[in-house]
Design a protein around this nucleic acid. Structure first.
Length: 754
DNA sequence: CTGTCCTCACTTTTT
DNA sequence: GTGAGGACAG
């Protein structure tokens, strides 16, 4: 148990507390993830079956990082079996295996926010409501928060206080939209993001035997970022751990930044109420940042009224003061950041990857990007327009979805006339009308005799029938063919590839490339599964894997490796960088104008700033601009109130007048050159980046003649190796029934026997 | 039914 | 400044 020596006394106590409820209040940089990972490793070392441990995180990034760290600690074989992932992905998995109980198909579609919004739009239209009053975003928000508070549509309509709220805001029919929305999702065999949690609650509530099963299966539950859980999530966890109460939650109220989405800091308070004999440990020693950063952050967060008492401290050096830059325009701000990075790199001998630039909204990245490009500083944008959100990718994925679940109305609406087939708006509307009358999905209308009852001309009917035949073919193929083959087939037979191929504009080429990239990712996925011993890899399993991915997954590419990170503060949570720039510190931007009239919302913004400050290890740079382009208009700003809330003894104000004049003019003349950056944007790959350094290294130790062991196939001998380093393919003869196999080493996780 | 031009809303954050 | 969606002509 040497690893316990890596921990400080408080951390160690938390790790060694195995049975019974446990709450860890962990300040920023206090080794929260370390405690979680060590605790899981410790449980396994004590003989707990990894299958019986469930570890829930909030984001894919956090899940991925924890997986990697556990693998490093205890090896992949054990860690693979821990149920670890985001709330949404873990419960999606459970819902798929229990779907029939809820009347859903096990291959239900997951609607993303765009799907939900588009469905809501069509419902609003059908009800002849004004979408200026019933703004789809707002309606979706109401429905979402209802679900996250476990209110069904029926309950929503019965609840007098909600109804009077909706009356008062002159939107009395939101409840009706909610009911219809639920009906449509069900009809389409689809769940939205909130359903993944809501329906899990229903499942555990209405099927005691199912609840019992999972209570029995999960002996230990760990929840990361507990302050960000909403009521729905908390209820699931509470139910599953009710029998043993082996629940460990880790959180920091000072870093709660998702209240806007229904997260409830009260959950931390409730926790003490629900588990009176809970053991609480506070991790207050910060290992990440300098004294200056820690104390500056403390001085800021002390302005919040709602918080737990906690004193974060550090033994680290004092470090440099925070640098505060005032600039005149957003472009100048970008330029200043780029220059500062350039200088710091030389003075401190640091790398691009040591820097992060954090902002409140994604739109702010533009000015920064231009400046970095001009200075030739490599950068990477996290979040923003993710690969899966691109139009062309969503089109192909809609065909994939349709081939797996033809009842998916949102997918059908997306592609029934893309590429152009001469099926116009009027026809689709008439079909949708018939579908609603019969309470059937669009597919059930167009693929049966019901189509004859729709009042459209025969030409259009013929075109629709052709479309149905294509999809029917795809449906059949997805059941028997390898995922990558079906993928190619669908991309070309649907006409999508051809449509983009004929488009020779740079955008068209880039879209075509993106689809190739998607198909490559699909192939990679298939190879990976085959290496794990699966014979037939279906498209279905791929779609289940990616439907909850919104991040861009990192590409293992040397060039991208050393780059400056650009991201929103929300996306930066849980990460750390030696040098951190926080830009756009202006009133109405940060804090956002939507939050300044409400104490709670303002405090959330302040916590967000706290999160930003505490990302830094060595030094912080803050900046604001007097004017900034927003919505194409020049806006004049005053500095953010948050700047003054940091104890001024930690801040050095910098004005750079000399640089201001010469460089803004240079900037203006050159800006147009960088107007179109579309095709230069990075391409991201779909390949799940399982291989950590451990695996990549070990593949280099496999030679012809090596004796190896495979998780599924057992022992074997390597007879042939081909391919590039880090991407080698080996032919292996296995002793058992598996016989001769070709495996990609980077996925196969072969153990070398000596 | 399709293509083009115009208007308008969009900027809070994620699964 | 951009992209989605509506109005209108062909």
């Amino acid at each position: 148990m040497d690893y316990l020596n890596d921990l400080n006394p408080e951390q160690k106590k938390a790790v060694e507390h195995t049975e019974g409820p446990l709450m860890i209040l962990a300040g920023a940089g206090s080794g929260k993830t370390r405690v979680l990972t060590y605790r899981i490793a410790h449980l396994i070392n004590l003989g707990v079956d990894p299958f019986k441990i469930m570890a829930l995180t909030f984001t894919n990034k956090a899940a991925k990082e924890m997986k990697e760290r556990i693998t490093r600690l205890i090896g992949s074989n054990e860690s693979m079996n821990v149920w670890m992932g985001t709330f949404h992905s873990v419960f999606a998995k459970i819902l798929r295996s229990e779907a029939d109980k809820l009347g859903y198909p096990s291959n239900f579609t997951i609607y993303d926010t765009d799907d939900s919004k588009s469905l809501i739009k069509s419902i609003i239209k059908e009800l002849n409501l004004d979408d200026k009053v019933y703004k789809p975003n707002l309606v979706l928000g109401r429905i979402s928060s209802a679900k996250n508070n476990l209110l069904s549509a029926e309950e929503y309509n019965k609840n007098t206080s909600i109804q009077s709220e909706d009356q008062q805001s002159k939107k009395p029919l939101i409840g009706k939209i909610y009911s219809l929305y639920v009906k449509r999702c069900f009809r389409a065999g689809a769940m939205d993001f909130d359903d993944l949690l809501y329906q899990t609650n229903i499942l555990l509530r209405d099927f005691p035997e199912v609840l019992y099963k999972y209570q029995d299966r999960f002996e230990f539950i760990l929840v990361d970022e507990f302050q960000d859980t909403n009521f729905s999530q908390y209820t699931i966890v509470k139910k599953i751990c009710a029998r043993r109460e082996n629940i460990c939650v880790v959180g920091d109220d000072a870093q709660s930044i998702y209240a806007f989405r229904g997260a409830n800091i009260q959950n931390i308070l409730n926790f003490k109420r629900d588990y009176p004999d809970v053991k609480t440990y506070k991790l207050e020693q910060n290992y990440r940042s300098t004294k200056t950063i820690v104390q500056a952050a403390n001085s800021l967060i002390s302005k919040n009224k709602n918080q737990f008492k906690k004193e974060v401290w550090t033994q680290n050096d004092s470090g440099k003061n925070i640098a505060l830059f005032k600039t005149t325009t957003d472009n100048q701000e970008g330029w200043l950041v780029a220059n500062q990075i350039f200088d710091t790199k030389i003075n401190q001998q640091s790398f691009n990857k040591d820097f992060a630039i954090l902002y409140r909204t994604n739109a702010q990245s533009r000015a920064i990007e231009e400046a970095l490009r001009k200075k030739n500083i490599a950068y990477r944008i996290y979040g923003g327009l993710s690969f899966y959100k691109r139009k062309e990718i969503k089109d192909v994925l809609a065909y994939f979805r349709l081939s797996l679940n033809p009842k998916d109305d949102e997918a059908i609406k997306r592609v029934i006339n893309y590429p152009k087939r001469g099926i116009g708006k009027t026809s689709i509307e008439k079909i949708a009308l018939t579908a609603n009358e019969k309470s059937k999905s669009i597919w059930e209308v167009i693929s049966t005799e019901s189509l004859q009852e729709v009042a459209i001309n025969n030409g259009a009917k013929k075109k629709i029938e052709d479309f149905v035949h294509i999809i029917e073919l795809f449906v059949a193929q997805t059941k028997t063919m390898q995922a990558s083959d079906v993928g190619h087939q669908i991309a070309s037979s649907s006409g999508v590839l051809k449509d983009l191929y004929t488009d020779k504009t740079p955008e068209g080429l880039s879209r075509h490339e993106n689809i190739q990239e998607l198909l490559n990712g699909l192939k990679d996925f298939e190879e990976q599964k085959k290496a794990q011993g699966e014979e037939l890899v279906l498209l279905e399993s791929y779609m289940q894997e990616i439907s909850l991915l919104t991040d861009n997954i990192e590409q293992d590419n040397q060039e991208l490796e050393d780059s400056v990170s650009l991201m929103t503060i929300h996306a930066a949570k849980g990460l750390e960088f030696p040098y951190v720039f926080i830009v756009g510190l202006e009133e109405n931007l940060f804090p956002s104008q939507l939050s300044i009239y409400d104490r709670n919302q303002l405090e959330e913004e302040r916590r967000l700033f706290y999160v930003a400050l505490t990302r830094a290890e060595k030094q912080l740079f803050l900046s604001y601009a007097d004017t900034r382009y927003r919505w194409g208009k020049l806006v004049v700003n005053t500095p953010s109130r948050f700047i003054e809330e940091i104890d001024p003894k930690y801040i050095d104000e910098k004005f750079s007048k000399a640089q201001t004049r010469s460089n803004t003019t240079e900037f203006k003349t050159q800006t147009p050159l960088f107007g179109k950056g579309y095709q230069k944007r990075k391409l991201t790959k779909v390949a799940p980046s399982q291989p950590s350094s451990i695996h990549t290294d070990s593949t280099e130790q496999i030679y012809v003649g090596s004796s190896v062991k495979h998780q599924k196939f057992g022992k074997g001998k390597v007879v042939h190796i081909e391919g590039q380093p880090h991407n080698k393919k080996a032919t292996v003869y296995f002793e058992g029934a598996a016989g001769k196999r070709q495996l990609l080493l980077k996925y196969a996780k072969l153990e070398v026997l000596t």
